[in-house]
Structure formats: structure tokens, C-alpha cells
Design a binder for these strands. Structure first.
Length: 209
DNA sequence: TTCCAGGCAATAC
DNA sequence: GTATTGCATGGA
């Protein structure tokens, strides 16, 4: 059952190409340069349980300072700048832990990133997929919400369980994974942001039975 | 006013 | 192993 590939095609037909990751300024889908890689990683931390508009405010206040050295300002100072993204004390600490990791020159892989304080599975996979072009499917709250609603996964399925579904049923393709996750977010923002979920979702007839 | 947003770590059961 | 709680701003 290739349900998840069919779902991708329908989401794409509905919402079109998303072109993620949404970095500041213009991003046309080319591979991110070094500075853009860092911005993606910082954004991935800032957006933890936080709306992207608030992350954009924080990133705007960081503009000109998205460099490993500049971000090493005192944690309290960094916290003030990223305040609009919420959880600013924790996130300032997380950013500094991530910078420590980069400075350590350890290999940037899933295991090493997961060992960094403040970086969990979704944040790692976002970084690896969008900044480092590694094919890990990103599972977020929206992804689970939609798949649960379609009865494709059980309620309370674990991160690994859901990720495995995509890794098994899809070709391990970076561009496909990038678009697919972005499409989940677009779809969820439109139909799964307020309860009751799924009102007006044109795909419901195909996936919920 | 309440609810929630592209989670995570610490703690409790 | 799974459930709960603290972390925090800003917009609907």
C-alpha cells in the first residue's frame, strides 16, 4: 500500500511547489550556502513549538548576526534578541549548545546531533534535510495530526514509527522529502489548525474511510 | 480571555 | 516505556 505516495501527489496537486526552507530574503531552491545553512539550523531551533511568524521576528532581530562568532554573544543578550520566538532563555542556551557542537568539528550526522542538548528528532531531521541535504523525513505535530485523521497511523504513534512509514514507502529522495514535509505544513495550516480538524479538507474522501 | 503554534528535557507514574 | 509539566511570545 503506497498510500503515502498517493497522498504526496494529491497534496502537491492541491498546494503546488512550496520551495522550503523559507529563509530570510530570496531562496529559489538552490543549495544553501554556509550562512544559509546556519540560518536554517537556528530557525529549526527557534520554531520549536512556535509559530513561524514569531520566528521571523526573532530572525529579523538577528539579521547581520547569523555567524558562528557573532552568535556567541552572552546568552542573556542572545535571549533578548530572540524574545519574540518565545522560550527565549532555553532557546538561547540551545543555540549556544549547537554552536559548541559545530566548533567541536564532530561529524554532522543524526546520532551526533541528537546528543546535543535541545535538539530532538524533529529539529535534527529538519537540519539534516534542509541544511545538509540528507534524506530524513521530518515528522511534526501537523504530520501526525493529518495522518491520524486519515487513519493512516494510530493515535500516539512514536516519531520513529511515523518516520519509518515514509522511509519504507518512498524513495529516499531529499527533494521529495523537503516538498512533502512543507506540503503537510501548508495543508495543516489550512485545514487542521482549528478544531474540529479537517473541515473542508478536499482529500478527506480519499483517505478517511 | 482562552487557545495554540513546524518541541524538548526533566520528572513522575 | 508512556504521561505530564515548564518553558514564553504574539496573533486569532
Amino acid at each position: 500500500m503506497k498510500k503515502v505516495f498517493k497522498l504526496y501527489e494529491e497534496l502537491f496537486a492541491l498546494h503546488g511547489k512550496q520551495g522550503w526552507w523559507p529563509i530570510q530574503g530570496v531562496y529559489d531552491g538552490r543549495l544553501p550556502n554556509k550562512k544559509e545553512q546556519l540560518e536554517i539550523c537556528i530557525g529549526a531551533i527557534l520554531t520549536q513549538n512556535t509559530s513561524w511568524v514569531n520566528v521571523e521576528k526573532a530572525l529579523a532581530q538577528l539579521s547581520g548576526k547569523i555567524h558562528e562568532k557573532a552568535l556567541r554573544m552572552p546568552q542573556e543578550k542572545l535571549a533578548v534578541l530572540i524574545k519574540p520566538a518565545g522560550y527565549f532563555n532555553q532557546k538561547a542556551k540551545k543555540i549556544h549548545c549547537f554552536l559548541d557542537f559545530l566548533a567541536s568539528k564532530k561529524e554532522v550526522d543524526r546520532e551526533n546531533l541528537l546528543a546535543v542538548w535541545g535538539i530532538g528528532p524533529e529539529t535534527v531531521d529538519s537540519m539534516l534535510l534542509y541544511a545538509y541535504q540528507q534524506p530524513y523525513f521530518v515528522v511534526d505535530a501537523y504530520t501526525k495530526r493529518i495522518l491520524e485523521h486519515y487513519k493512516i497511523i494510530k493515535a500516539h504513534a512514536s516519531y520513529e514509527e511515523v518516520q519509518n512509514l515514509f522511509h519504507k514507502e518512498l524513495p529516499r529522495d531529499v527533494e521529495l522529502f523537503k516538498e512533502y514535509h512543507a506540503l503537510f505544513v501548508a495543508h495543516a495550516k489550512k485545514y487542521y489548525s482549528k478544531k474540529p480538524y479537517g473541515i473542508g479538507d478536499p482529500l478527506l474522501g480519499d483517505f478517511k474511510k
